[in-house]
């Protein structure tokens, strides 16, 4: 056992965490908006748009993320008109290519989760809201959306963890996040197994914290499922 080596590797790999965190949070944030948007289109009565949304989800769920990333990164660069357009300002940077690929990917998976969540909102609650005079946007904003999202949260938490794991692929398009740094270290010392194990531990720690966070969020969002807090009254205190 070479504790010093493990420790210095650990510290070195930690320098990749900020980039990973950026990739994850940006992709998840934009991907979530995209997911809600796509889920709503798919649930709408607008046949053509719904069909296009279905096609998008189908393609992105049916192909490996690595292919999507290579198509966006190396593939789009093949065309001169893309390289001459304003899009190139973003696409020429691996950072934005990675974000674009991750966003589109999580948007597709996320939309299915949210669609499931929205569909699982009990009819009774919607009827009750209608009876109370809510309709349209108000009904959606106050009832369908919050309940649907709450239902979708556990599955969405899973998707977040998958996203953290997916960022390791960014190393393949030259990004120096945790896995990218691990590869650089391997090329310097050739001690592959040790370095990979340390990297694995870092990912496990991050995902552990993320799982806690989602659990806490779930708890926070479902006050109606919790026991009512016991308030200590002077009378109760006196009874003892």
């Amino acid at each position: 056992m070479d504790i010093d080596f493990y420790w210095s590797t650990f510290l070195e790999l930690l320098t990749g965490v900020p980039l990973m965190a950026q990739l994850v949070s940006l992709s998840l944030a934009v991907g979530f908006v995209l997911a809600v948007f796509v889920a709503l289109i798919r649930l709408s009565r607008w046949r053509l748009a719904s069909g296009i949304a279905y096609g998008y989800v189908y393609v992105f769920r049916g192909t490996p993320l690595l292919v999507q990333m290579f198509l966006i990164y190396y593939g789009l660069g093949q065309f001169e008109w893309i390289r001459e357009s304003f899009l190139w300002v973003f696409l020429r940077q691996p950072y934005w290519c990675a974000i674009l690929a991750f966003t589109l990917n999580t948007g597709a998976y996320g939309s299915e989760i949210i669609r499931g969540g929205l569909q699982s909102v009990p009819w009774g609650q919607i009827e009750a809201a209608r009876a109370a005079g809510m309709s349209g946007w108000l009904l959606f904003r106050r009832i369908t959306m919050p309940i649907g999202i709450r239902q979708a949260l556990p599955a969405y938490g899973n998707e977040m963890i998958l996203m953290v794991k997916a960022t390791s692929l960014a190393s393949i398009i030259t990004m120096l996040e945790i896995t990218g740094i691990a590869q650089r270290l391997i090329s310097q010392s050739y001690r592959a197994v040790e370095i990979l194990v340390v990297a694995g531990v870092i990912y496990l720690m991050i995902n552990f914290m993320l799982t806690r966070l989602v659990k806490w969020l779930e708890h926070w969002l479902s006050p109606h499922l919790r026991d009512a807090p016991v308030v200590a009254t002077p009378a109760a205190a006196l009874a003892h």
């Binding site: 794991k165 692929l169 990979l196 990297a199 990912y203 496990l204």
Partner: peptide, 8 residues
Amino acid sequence: RGVPDLLV
């Protein structure tokens, strides 16, 4: 479930 597939 916590470690990237690529690492495994």
